[in-house]
Amino acid sequence: MNNHYFQTAKPLNQQLQQLMQRMHAHAPQIARVSYAKYNRDTDTLVTYADSEFQLWSELHHEKRLSKLDHLKRAAAMGIPRVIDDLAYMKHCDRIGFLLNKGYRSSAAIPCFQNHRFSGFVFLNAYEPNVFSNQSLMSLVPYIEMLQFAVESQSQVVKTIVEFADRLRTGSNLFSRDSYYHGRRMRAYTKVIAQYVAERHQLDDEQVEAIAMFAQVHDIGKTQLPESMIYNSEPFGPQELISARSHIDNGIKMMDEIVSSVGSPNHPSIALLNQIMRFQYEYLDGSGYPYGFQGEEVPLAARIVAVANIFDSMTTHKSYRQACSVTSALLELEKMVLQGKIDGQCVDALRSSQMYLKQVIQKYPEPEGWGADNTEC
């Protein structure tokens, strides 16, 4: 199998720092290197990696490309956009932010994958008039290396999730609801991960990986018998043990997937392992399979746990109807007071209630459950 990514890699921000140091041989005035990915579906440029900024409030930035005339033109023509002195562009909030950080000049180099625009490499310097066509030409090999590094990191996660989705799709238990559950989980976990990012020093790369892996978090359930999945009665002791075996099934399946794509040594694999192993742990130690408590439960697992409980509460089950978003959040608050789940993760969902309703509307349950939600 031909895998188009690095088998071993450091976190992307560290890779950008190292590449910037190598660029100094040709352009010693470069003080910052960053990359913004282009999302074609939403027409947005979203920051993904940065050599200098660490805090989420500084690092994360997104904007519609259609609203950025100069960058839109650069992407369409495939030529760099150079600003010799940022002081003349104060009308833009982001440029104002860069000026406050001391940067004076900027270059944005469009990148392409399979002849389609994929994002920008941004270079900044503390002095004006740093970037010329000649200096940028000397940096082409480093820009290509940077682009491959970004695509490599993203491709590792994408490849694992695609393999897992294929296995789920081939299962007898797979349905439209399984697919929609995965998409809702991806949306909910991204909301939570972005909300807690600054406090826990998550970057865009980690936030994206957590959200992507969340959509296949329950792959182990494909190995359970249908009678157990659709059972409307409470589980007995033996049935409960069998039901919880899906955790081991999921870990084994993901280990096989990671092995099949070459066992890449990437930071994202650690996040995947945390989600698969600890997503059913409670902070008070009452969860399973290990009975971990508090900080023993990794952040990625806490995020997925809250998202999964919320999704379970807001979807119909054979034994009860769905809660409204408001009622589900109240139930989650009770669990926070009981010390079971992370309060900041619940705060994240509470702060995005309108978006949560939009996600539920976009990825609804199969027809037949009924259209009206009943309060829990």
Rank of each mutant, 00 (worst) to 15 (best):
E233P: 00
G220H: 09
Y230A: 08
A270R: 15
R199S: 14
L283Y: 02
S175E: 09
P234W: 12
I241V: 14
A187N: 09
F213H: 06
D203M: 06
A209G: 08
T189P: 04
E281A: 07
V207L: 05
Q201E: 06
T189F: 00
G220I: 06
A197E: 02
P225Q: 07
V258P: 12
P225Y: 13
A209Q: 11
E208G: 02
A243I: 07
D218S: 10
D255H: 15
S260K: 08
H246A: 08
G262Q: 04
S263W: 06
H266Y: 06
L271W: 02
S242W: 06
Y230F: 14
A187C: 12
R183E: 11
L272F: 10
F235D: 14
A197H: 00
S227R: 14
S232D: 06
Y195D: 08
A193V: 01
M212K: 07
D284P: 00
E239Y: 08
Y282F: 13
H246C: 13
I229H: 04
I229Y: 04
T222M: 09
F235K: 13
A214D: 10
Q206I: 01
A193I: 05
L173W: 08
D248F: 04
R199W: 11
I219F: 01
L202V: 08
M254A: 05
K190L: 04
H181M: 01
P264C: 07
Q215R: 14
E226M: 12
A270N: 14
Y179I: 03
V216Q: 02
M212A: 11
Q279D: 05
Y290G: 00
Q206N: 07
Y230I: 07
K190S: 04
V216S: 10
T189R: 05
R176E: 14
R244W: 05
S178Q: 03
I275M: 10
H266K: 01
A193M: 05
S242M: 08
A270Q: 15
L240R: 15
N172E: 11
S245L: 07
M276N: 02
F278E: 04
G236S: 14
P267D: 03
E256H: 11
F213D: 04
L224Q: 10
M228Q: 12
D177N: 11
T189A: 09
M212D: 13
D284I: 05
N172A: 12
F174Q: 04
A243W: 14
Y230P: 01
R199G: 11
L240F: 06
I219V: 13
M253R: 12
M228D: 06
Y188N: 02
E281F: 01
Y288E: 09
M276W: 03
I251Y: 10
L173Y: 11
G220M: 06
Y195S: 13
R277V: 09
A211R: 00
S259Q: 14
D203P: 03
A270H: 14
S286I: 01
G250L: 06
A214N: 07
S286D: 00
